[in-house]
């Protein structure tokens, strides 16, 4: 068991544990903090897979921008554990059973998948570097890139139109 595999298990346990913390914690602020830990663990996975550009973008976009937005909205609404609406016990139990069943069904469906004998390359390979990704992005994916800028413009206009007082 070398250092990459040890890091893989640590990051996996961290990601799954903090994702469970998002679902289970009563206070919405703790949920957001657990979600930040999940995003950092997934960024660690990207670094382990040598996808360095995606790791940095994940930290900047998710942990930097999106999570600040979530925390801002939660603190603006002054949510805490006392005002948190709770579902009844039976509905929570049914939700957990449904999630567990979905997990079992997908795992069972992939039991004989062909790809499972292959391995992912850890800590080497240079397709995740910004030079190669940039070349592919601006040669083969120019049109989706430009369309995504239009998407951002429309999202910005939409957020302002929804947010302003009428």
């Amino acid at each position: 068991m070398n250092i990459s595999q040890i890091l893989f298990w640590i990051l996996t346990v961290l990601a799954l544990g903090s994702a469970l913390g998002v679902v289970l914690s009563k206070n919405p602020v703790y949920s957001v903090l657990c979600l930040i830990v999940t995003f950092f663990a997934i960024s660690g996975h990207y670094i382990l897979l040598n996808a360095q550009f995606l790791a940095i973008v994940n930290i900047i976009v998710y942990a930097g921008a999106i999570m600040v937005l979530f925390l801002f909205v939660i603190m603006l609404m002054n949510l805490n554990a006392e005002v948190e609406p709770q579902k009844s016990k039976i509905l929570k139990f049914a939700g957990f059973i449904a999630g567990l069943c979905l997990f079992l069904v997908i795992v069972a469906a992939l039991k004989n998948a062909e790809a499972k004998t292959q391995a992912a390359q850890l800590a080497s390979g240079d397709i995740g570097l910004i030079k190669n990704l940039g070349t592919a992005l601006f040669n083969d994916y120019v049109l989706p890139f430009e369309i995504s800028s239009v998407l951002f413009l429309s999202a910005m206009v939409g957020a302002v139109v929804i947010g302003k007082k009428e």
Binding site: A19, V23, L100
Partner: peptide, 9 residues
Amino acid sequence: CIGITGVLT
């Protein structure tokens, strides 16, 4: 599936 469970519960 943790995400699905959170949406449901």
